[in-house]
Design a protein around this nucleic acid. Structure first.
Lengths: 344, 344
DNA sequence: GGTTAGCACTCGCAGGCTTCGAGTGCTAAC
DNA sequence: GTTAGCACTCGAAGCCTGCGAGTGCTAACC
């Protein structure tokens, strides 16, 4: 048996309706709401075929049908050719990003909020990340007599900071001098290289071994657990609005997953070079997410670093709308991080 | 009618039991589980009195009693004199903070996680915050030909960063020079003062008006919406485990509140100079939290800045345990931020 | 006078039963 | 190939009932 044009149209109608209502959809609904010029009986026959082909599931015999993961896959791959976003929505996105929001973390946070409030799903935004961050500047700032704040700025604009011990008296001028030497010596190095070159530097900065030792520890640390830049999650509570999560246990395991930032980042950062990626249900590879879908999009900076924005929602997600929104916001972010801030 | 010693003991037993089980507690339970040497009938009489005094509520006539907010208040204020934390727990806390975790944000995040996993409630940690941050260093780092990253370090160790436009060609040496001048001029200023002094500085840095203009915008921004340092929230999903939140709508409104970071920070940062603060139910002043309690504790740094750690849980919270844990972790954080890192 | 046993009464909860209706599959006629 | 008709299925919602936890009151007891 093959899937023909008519089956496809019916399948699309079923998916559309199910996405809208979340209720198993019956043959009568299709024949009335989406005027196909066919009676419910005919639709019924086709639906039976579609079930046999694996595109529909039936929760129980007297209920309607629900689309399977395979159906969504087909839907996303072929039915959804050009997802245009409504204009009002586009302009409202622009408005949401207007005003002077520059703080890098704020942009990320804000993006997550905007995406989640537009889609009513959960949004995740990962800051740009290159392959190997390279040091631009190292700066030591006195905090107390015994401690200093070390700030490392890398070419990814990612700042790592930590309080370290400095031995005894050391005024801010001395620290400033050390900072300059360190910056001169280490600019352009990766964290790994910086660690390796520590011994060589210690000759140039005599008598400050404690500082260098602490610094090295800090760098090692920063490299072992590579800071994933920043991650923002928004709208986790949105998910509770869907009947799929009226079961508290399900909701709990979902939320708990959203809280384990590391795991979540790995899941979201799944897409290699693809600009868009849609993973449906089991395709996510995460057991807790068999009835979720993940849509991710990449945005990039001139420096070639790549960030990710993503939406997590129920499998019956409004894929078309989500893709459009991610597309627009991805471009906005790309523009912003490249400094083409067209909102001014 | 007065509350005497015996009533107090009975009330304590009721509260203990209700905290443990979450189920309205009856007279028989008290007389059997907590051997008072009294029959259920006597307890019943006392409970009736306690209800009249406003310490107990009765969901319906054939159910047991549950403690009122007033009862918890009494409990927290008087019954709970010395909350000692079990030793194993204390050492396990120490273990959780071992290893080199120095990155300031990581400490905050980690603390939230530790607190939530120890208490099984929701934890919030706010980074230290002084009254008026003062500029320590300003650094411009080239990002592209047209843009630069500006990093401002304040005496609170809080870093603000943003990408700004710089006009045309400007190599990193020029930027470095400007950074030094800016730092010299503005060190010790508050953000407000820095804005005011911008015109004066523009004389010293000629021909770079765009940079100064952008910088000023950034500073104004940073001051208008005072960055609350960093805030970490952990264990929001823990709350769903309590029967109080088996109602999805309640859970949703709670989670949604946890997501509005600004509001949440304001709520948590409620305690002025107090080292500990317990707000029970309506005392929180937040309508969505009438059946929550908030326990907060302050920790501080040598610089006199003050951070807050807090736990949000159902009103029937294990106050004693929570206070102990906050106490220990508060000290740990104080130590850490002062550099007395005793875990090495 | 405080304490306790006894007892009638209340009322939410869980389980079982029934009804309702949405939806299906099949058959026969168009 | 399409459609009307019909018997059948089965979950959801509503109703009823019995159970039991818990109370308040009264009367007896120490």
């Amino acid at each position: 048996m093959d899937i023909d044009e008519r089956k496809l149209r019916i399948l699309q109608a079923i998916i559309d309706d199910y996405i809208l209502t979340g209720v198993p959809v019956g043959s009568r609904t299709i024949s009335k709401k989406y005027d196909m010029g066919l009676s419910s009986a005919t639709i019924r026959n086709e639906m039976s075929d579609l079930e046999e082909l694996g595109f529909l599931d039936q929760p129980h015999v007297s209920a309607g049908r629900i689309p399977s993961a395979k159906a969504y896959r087909l839907y996303v791959d072929t039915l959804l050719k050009t997802g245009r976003i409504p204009d009002d929505s586009e302009s409202s996105i622009q408005r949401l990003f207007s005003g002077r929001i520059h703080q890098m973390e704020d942009v990320i946070d804000h993006a997550a909020q905007v995406i989640s409030s537009l889609t009513h799903y959960t949004a995740v935004v990962l800051s740009p990340k290159g392959i190997q961050p390279r040091i631009q500047t190292i700066q030591l700032v006195p905090v107390s007599a015994e401690t200093a704040l070390v700030v490392v700025v890398t070419d990814q604009g990612i700042v790592r900071d930590s309080v370290i011990h400095i031995g005894g008296q050391m005024d801010s001028d001395t620290l400033y001098a050390i900072s300059r030497t360190l910056t001169e010596e280490l600019r352009g190095s990766t964290l790994q290289e910086a660690c390796d070159r520590m011994p060589a530097i210690s000759e140039r900065i005599s008598g400050n071994n404690l500082v260098l030792q602490e610094l090295r520890g800090f760098l090692t640390e920063g490299q072992r657990s590579p800071r994933r830049g920043h991650m923002a999650v928004g709208g986790t509570s949105n998910m509770l609005a869907y009947p799929e999560y009226s079961d508290v246990d399900k909701a709990r395991s979902f939320l708990s997953l959203m809280e384990t930032r590391d795991k979540l980042a790995d899941i979201i950062r799944g897409n290699g070079e693809m600009s868009f990626m849609v993973r449906i249900g089991p395709e996510t590879g995460v057991p807790e997410m068999t009835d979720c879908s993940i849509v991710t999009a990449a945005y990039s900076t001139k420096g070639g670093q790549q960030g990710t924005i993503g939406v997590i929602g129920p499998t019956r997600m409004q894929y078309s709308r989500v893709l459009s929104i991610l597309n627009v916001i991805g471009h906005q972010l790309t523009d912003m991080f490249n400094g083409d801030d067209d909102t001014k």
